Amino acid sequence: MQHRNNRGDVANCVDCYVSEHKVTDKVAFAAIDSMIEDEWKTTNQARFEHRRELFPVVQRVVNFTLSLPVYYGDRKDAFTFSTHLNGIIKNLFVKPIPI
């Protein structure tokens, strides 16, 4: 992906994975997606198994972690390009599900 290196940014996780493991971008994306899913499962498991033991600070970190798929799910950066996030907000507040 040539466009990633034109911005002068530091290497992202895909670039690092490709360089370290000598694989294609497609393989790197699949591996990173798998890692994200594993960590998501671990976070949810800890959240439900240790609900009472989690300190308020830890609970805030867990809550932040659980919100990340909203901002970065489906390889979309809703923080930078807010059209994805705009749709979620409209569905939640403008067109709520009737009770």
Score class of each variant (00 low, 15 high):
residue 3 H to G: 04
residue 4 R to D: 14
residue 4 R to T: 12
residue 4 R to K: 12
residue 4 R to N: 09
residue 5 N to T: 10
residue 6 N to C: 06
residue 7 R to V: 12
residue 7 R to Y: 13
residue 9 D to K: 10
residue 9 D to Y: 15
residue 10 V to H: 14
residue 10 V to K: 13
residue 10 V to L: 15
residue 13 C to M: 10
residue 13 C to Q: 11
residue 13 C to I: 14
residue 13 C to T: 11
residue 14 V to K: 04
residue 14 V to C: 02
residue 14 V to D: 02
residue 15 D to E: 14
residue 16 C to M: 13
residue 16 C to L: 14
residue 16 C to Q: 14
residue 17 Y to C: 11
residue 17 Y to A: 02
residue 17 Y to V: 03
residue 18 V to Q: 10
residue 19 S to R: 13
residue 19 S to H: 13
residue 21 H to N: 07
residue 21 H to P: 05
residue 22 K to S: 15
residue 22 K to R: 15
residue 22 K to V: 13
residue 22 K to Y: 12
residue 23 V to H: 03
residue 23 V to T: 11
residue 24 T to V: 02
residue 24 T to C: 02
residue 24 T to K: 01
residue 25 D to I: 02
residue 25 D to Q: 10
residue 27 V to S: 06
residue 27 V to W: 07
residue 27 V to L: 09
residue 28 A to L: 07
residue 28 A to V: 03
residue 28 A to R: 00
residue 28 A to M: 07
residue 29 F to S: 08
residue 29 F to E: 04
residue 30 A to I: 04
residue 30 A to H: 08
residue 31 A to K: 00
residue 31 A to I: 00
residue 34 S to P: 01
residue 35 M to S: 01
residue 35 M to H: 08
residue 35 M to G: 02
residue 36 I to Q: 05
residue 36 I to K: 02
residue 36 I to G: 02
residue 37 E to C: 00
residue 37 E to L: 00
residue 38 D to N: 04
residue 38 D to L: 00
residue 39 E to L: 06
residue 40 W to D: 04
residue 40 W to K: 01
residue 41 K to Q: 00
residue 42 T to L: 05
residue 42 T to N: 07
residue 44 N to I: 00
residue 44 N to V: 00
residue 44 N to H: 02
residue 45 Q to C: 01
residue 46 A to Y: 15
residue 46 A to Q: 12
residue 47 R to N: 10
residue 47 R to Q: 07
residue 48 F to T: 05
residue 48 F to S: 08
residue 49 E to V: 00
residue 50 H to M: 06
residue 50 H to V: 03
residue 50 H to E: 06
residue 50 H to N: 12
residue 51 R to W: 13
residue 51 R to G: 03
residue 52 R to T: 13
residue 52 R to G: 10
residue 52 R to Y: 07
residue 53 E to N: 06
residue 53 E to R: 02
residue 53 E to K: 01
residue 54 L to N: 06
residue 54 L to S: 08
residue 56 P to K: 07
residue 57 V to Q: 13
residue 57 V to K: 12
residue 58 V to D: 15
residue 58 V to H: 11
residue 59 Q to C: 11
residue 59 Q to A: 15
residue 59 Q to P: 05
residue 61 V to M: 14
residue 61 V to E: 10
residue 61 V to W: 11
residue 61 V to I: 14
residue 62 V to D: 06
residue 62 V to M: 11
residue 62 V to L: 06
residue 62 V to N: 03
residue 63 N to H: 11
residue 63 N to T: 09
residue 65 T to A: 12
residue 67 S to F: 12
residue 67 S to Y: 07
residue 68 L to F: 07
residue 70 V to W: 09
residue 71 Y to G: 04
residue 72 Y to N: 05
residue 75 R to W: 11
residue 75 R to C: 04
residue 75 R to V: 00
residue 75 R to G: 05
residue 77 D to L: 00
residue 77 D to S: 03
residue 78 A to R: 13
residue 78 A to Q: 08
residue 78 A to N: 10
residue 79 F to P: 05
residue 83 T to R: 15
residue 85 L to V: 05
residue 85 L to R: 08
residue 87 G to N: 14
residue 87 G to I: 01
residue 88 I to D: 12
residue 88 I to S: 12
residue 88 I to W: 15
residue 88 I to P: 08
residue 89 I to F: 11
residue 89 I to Y: 11
residue 90 K to L: 15
residue 93 F to R: 01
residue 94 V to W: 03
residue 94 V to G: 04
residue 95 K to F: 13
residue 95 K to E: 09
residue 98 P to A: 04
residue 98 P to M: 06
residue 99 I to T: 12
